[in-house]
Design a protein around this nucleic acid. Structure first.
Length: 491
RNA sequence: GGUCGGGUGGCCGAGAGGCGAGGCAGAGCUCUGCAAAAGCUCCUACAGCGGUUCAAAUCCGCUCCCGACCUCCA
C-alpha cells in the first residue's frame, strides 16, 4: 500500500523501492573514521538514514541496518609514504592508536544517542575484518584486476575498465580522468595514477599494521565497505547510503572491487545525502570550517551565538530535504529551535483536548499527506510542514474554534506519535525536574493565583520576574497558569 | 579543464507545466490587569534574456553567478 520512491544515484532517477527479499531489507551506510570528534556534517547522513530505517521499520520491513566504524589507519593523502590519520593523532596525543579509536568511537556513540539516532543493527569495525579483506584482495588478484608492488597491492583500473564500466556510478569517463589527474608525489609505484590501493605496505614508522601475504601492512580504504556490507547483508543487498562526497572514488571503487572479485554488483539502490555548508562552502575536516556536535550542544564555539540542543540540530537537518545542501547559520538554527518548540507545545496540548460529537477538521488528510511525503523520497520537510498544520488544528480545537470527534482525536494522536516520535525521531527535551520542583512550582502558582484574584499585580509580576531569573517562564491561559523551563516545551 | 548539482520572498527552505508549502523575522488585530503564549490577517518570491505552450518558478536555448566531486572527507 505504501509504495516508497527513492532517488537512486546510479540511475539518476526516482525509482519505486522493492526490496530483494521482503519483508527483509538490507541497508549499509558508510560510518565515520574515528580519529576526531563528529561535526555537524556527520550528523546529516546518520540522521537521514536513521529516519529512513525508522520509516521502513514503521512500514513493517525487517530492517538490517549495517553502519561501519573505520578504525584502521588510512593515509592523509595519496602519497605512498607518511602517516595515517589515526597514527598521526596517536603520536600527537601520545596514545596507542587503538586508544584514539576507542575514545572517538565512544564520543561518536554519545553524540548519536543525544541526537536520538538509533544504533544500527550491526556496527562492524574495519580492524575486525582484516582477514576477510585480505581474502577479497586475493580474489581480485586471482582474477587479474590487481597487482602487487613492494608489498602493496593496487587495483588495475585500466584493465578493469576494458571489461567493465568504471565510472558508472559517478558518471566519470576513465580516459578523461587520466588526462585530468593531478600530478601527485609518491605515486610512482602505481602503474597508473587512477589505480587505487587495496593493501598498503606499512613503512617502519607506521604503527597500525597487520600481517598479510604481501607483508606487514594495512588495507586500502575502499575494501572494508565491500567486504563488510556483503558479509552481513549478502552478495546483493538493497540500499547503500552515504554522503555525496563518497560517491567518487569510494563508492565507485566498491562497485569495481565487487565485480573484480567475481561477485555480482551488490547494491540495488544507491542513496546519497548532500552536504551541510557554512557560508556557502562545504563543512569539512579538510577545510577546517567544521563545528563539532559537542560545540553545538555546549555553545562553546566562536561561530555560535548560543548552545543548540540535539533535537534542534535534528529538526534543523530534517527541515531540509536530504538531497539538498543545507546552509548553517545561527539564525536558521534559532528558527528551527523556535519552530520545534511550537510544534512540541501543541503536541503537549493535544492530550487535554475536548472531544465533540462532530469533527470540523480533517485528520485523515493530515495523515495521508505525511505518508505521501515520506513515500516521495523521504520528503521530511513536507512532513514537517504538514505537522505544523496539525499543530494549527490542535490550537483551534483548544480554543474551541474547531471541533474534533473522538475517533479523530485518536487518529491525530496516533499520527503525531508515528510521524513525530517514531519516524522523524524527535523527542521531548525536558530537563530533569524533580518532583520537589514540580510541587514547589504548583505551590507558587497557587499563591500567584490568589494574589491575582486580589488584583495585587505587583506581587504577581514580582513572582513572574523572579522566576524568569531562574529561566522559568509563566504563561497565563484561560484555564490557569502553566510554567516551563527555558528550552523546554511544556509546563 | 572534466563531470554533476544549484540560483525561490528580509532569512531558512519545499515544489518542478495551471489553483501561491512550511518555518523564522516584521506589521496589524483578537485574547489579556500587563506580559508571554495562542489564534486570525498582512508582507505574494522563483538570477537575467529569449523561446515552446491556452498556461512556465517548473520545459528548451543562451548569458551571468555559486557549489560539489576529480586528493582525505559524511
Amino acid at each position: 500500500m505504501n509504495e516508497v520512491t527513492v532517488y537512486n544515484t546510479i540511475t539518476r532517477k526516482k525509482e519505486i523501492f522493492k526490496p530483494l527479499n521482503p519483508p527483509h531489507l538490507g541497508m549499509y551506510v558508510c560510518g565515520p573514521t574515528v580519529y576526531g570528534n563528529a561535526h555537524l556534517g556527520h550528523a546529516r547522513p546518520y540522521i537521514t538514514f536513521d529516519m529512513a530505517s525508522r520509516y521502513f521499520t514503521h512500514l513493517g520491513y525487517k530492517v538490517r541496518y549495517v553502519r561501519n566504524i573505520t578504525d584502521v589507519g588510512h593515509l592523509e593523502n595519496d602519497a605512498d609514504s607518511g602517516e595515517d590519520k589515526i597514527a598521526k593523532k596517536a603520536r600527537l596525543e601520545q596514545l596507542e592508536p587503538m586508544e584514539v579509536v576507542q575514545y572517538f568511537t565512544h564520543r561518536f556513540h554519545q553524540n548519536m544517542e543525544k541526537l536520538n539516532v538509533m544504533p544500527p543493527s550491526i556496527e562492524p569495525r574495519a580492524s575486525g575484518h582484516i582477514i576477510e579483506q585480505i581474502t577479497m584482495i586475493q580474489e581480485i588478484i586471482k582474477n587479474g584486476f590487481a597487482y602487487e608492488i613492494n608489498g602493496s597491492v593496487y587495483f588495475d583500473v585500466e584493465k578493469y575498465s576494458k571489461l567493465h564500466n568504471y565510472g558508472k556510478l559517478s558518471g566519470r569517463v576513465p580516459d578523461e580522468m587520466l588526462s585530468n589527474t593531478r600530478e601527485l608525489e609518491g605515486t610512482q609505484e602505481k602503474r597508473n595514477p587512477r589505480d587505487f590501493a587495496l593493501w598498503k605496505n606499512a613503512s617502519p614508522e607506521h604503527i597500525m599494521h597487520w600481517p598479510s601475504p604481501w607483508g606487514e601492512g594495512f588495507p586500502g580504504w575502499h575494501i572494508e565497505c565491500s567486504v563488510m556490507s556483503q558479509k552481513y547483508l549478502g552478495e546483493v543487498f538493497d540500499i547503500h547510503g552515504g554522503g555525496m562526497d563518497l560517491l567518487f572514488p569510494h563508492h565507485e571503487c566498491e562497485i569495481a572491487q565487487s565485480i573484480a572479485a567475481g561477485k555480482k554488483e551488490s547494491v540495488r539502490y544507491w542513496i546519497h545525502n548532500n552536504m551541510i555548508t557554512i557560508n556557502g562552502q562545504k563543512m569539512g575536516k579538510s577545510l577546517g570550517n567544521f563545528i563539532t556536535l559537542d560545540d553545538f550542544f555546549s555553545g562553546d564555539n566562536k561561530l555560535l551565538e548560543k548552545p543548540y540542543s540535539p533535537m534542534t540540530i535534528r529538526f534543523f537537518i530534517l527541515q531540509a530535504h536530504y538531497r539538498s545542501t543545507l546552509d548553517f547559520s545561527n539564525f536558521a538554527l534559532q528558527s528551527a529551535e523556535k519552530g520545534l518548540k511550537r510544534l512540541m507545545n501543541s503536541f503537549a496540548l493535544m492530550n487535554n483536548l475536548q472531544v465533540s460529537e462532530k469533527s470540523t477538521v480533517n485528520v485523515a488528510e493530515i495523515r495521508d499527506n505525511c505518508y505521501a511525503a515520506m513515500n516521495d523520497d523521504f520528503n521530511s520537510p513536507i512532513v514537517i510542514a504538514t505537522l505544523f498544520e496539525a499543530a494549527r488544528i490542535i490550537h483551534l480545537v483548544a480554543e474551541k474554534k474547531e471541533t474534533i470527534d473522538s475517533p479523530g482525536l485518536d487518529l491525530l494522536k496516533k499520527t503525531i506519535h508515528d510521524f513525530v516520535f517514531d519516524i522523524l525521531g524527535l523527542k521531548e527535551e525536558s530537563e530533569e525536574t524533580g518532583s520537589l520542583a514540580k510541587d514547589l512550582m504548583n505551590a507558587i502558582l497557587i499563591i500567584r493565583k490568589e494574589v491575582k484574584l486580589k488584583k495585587d499585580f505587583a506581587t504577581s509580576d514580582m513572582i513572574r520576574d523572579e522566576l524568569a531569573k531562574l529561566r522559568i517562564s509563566i504563561k497565563d491561559g484561560k484555564e490557569g497558569s502553566t510554567w516551563a523551563m527555558e528550552g523546554e516545551s511544556g509546563g
